[in-house]
């Protein structure tokens, strides 16, 4: 029943003298929400960069649905069903929230008609629904630069979800968001992911969020996965409390 969606095998990469990935191997199962935790500089973002083709590892392979995607460009990997949300939202800053989603779905559907107004495409309703799902329906027509950091994060995730991915990788979805809003955002998000049947991996520093929303946790340190398991066992582990949680507090 546990089908492997993404598998990283023996990934290695270094920047100058710093080893950012030291023989990393990890499997991600379909339908799960996996949290990645660990101190800054442990190589968490590097791992996401390798999985999405932004960085090429010196050694090792990434398999998505059994297919080797290590050497593919990010856009090819995206086409296979891997979407990504960023630590700093990557949005089209001269467009509104809704337009950001419409552009995303236009890319997904490869819409080419040169005379059709993007606002009249068939998928507009679907995008409005998606905006509603992430709780941003009221700001649909506002330029994204006017929105709060939290709203932009949600729209960044919605832009990724608009691609109907099989796997969504999120880099600190709740960082930069007021702590009172964090749980609200994750609540919305996990519901949206479940509704769209999307597997997710998210890098997270807030252990409250991890224990509540992750099905599985992988602990990163010094460029490698040190441990993985259920949130209960990982968050109780003395090493994790000392090295990871201690630092986060």
């Amino acid at each position: 029943m546990s089908e492997i969606l993404l598998e990283a095998r023996n990934l290695q990469i270094r920047f100058g003298g710093v080893i950012a990935a030291d023989n990393v191997s990890l499997t991600i199962e379909r339908g799960k929400n996996m949290a990645i935790i660990g101190p800054n500089g442990a190589g968490k973002t590097t791992f996401l960069n390798i999985c999405t083709g932004w960085l090429k590892p010196a050694k090792g392979t990434v398999l998505f649905e059994g297919r080797d995607v290590t050497s593919l460009a990010p856009r090819r990997i995206v086409r296979l069903g891997v979407a990504r949300a960023f630590q700093i939202p990557q949005l089209f800053t001269e467009h509104t929230a809704l337009e950001n989603l419409l552009i995303s779905v236009s890319a997904r559907e490869r819409l080419r008609h040169p005379l059709q107004d993007m606002h009249t495409i068939r998928q507009r309703g679907e995008m409005l629904h998606l905006l509603d799902m992430v709780g941003c329906a009221d700001v649909a027509d506002r330029p994204v630069v006017e929105l709060s950091e939290g709203q932009r994060k949600l729209i960044d995730i919605a832009v990724a979800l608009a691609l109907k991915p099989k796997l969504l990788l999120m880099d600190e979805p709740t960082s930069g968001v007021a702590s009172s809003e964090k749980f609200k955002i994750m609540e919305i998000l996990v519901k949206a992911l479940a509704e769209a049947k999307v597997t997710s991996v998210f890098v997270e520093h807030d252990m409250g969020i991890v224990s509540r929303y992750a099905d599985e946790v992988a602990v990163w340190a010094a460029g490698n996965v040190q441990m993985r398991g259920s949130p209960e066992e990982i968050l109780q582990h003395p090493d994790v409390i000392r090295d990871v949680i201690g630092e986060a507090v």
């Binding site: 999405t52 460009a73 990010p74 856009r75 090819r76 995206v78 086409r79 979407a83 990504r84 960023f86 990557q90 949005l91 089209f92 800053t93 001269e94 467009h95 552009i103 995303s104 890319a107 997904r108 832009v159 990724a160 691609l163």
Partner: peptide, 11 residues
């Protein structure tokens, strides 16, 4: 405005 996002839309 954002080529990174454009690539991550598969374009």
């Amino acid at each position: 405005t954002n080529e990174t996002r454009l690539q991550y839309l598969g374009v």
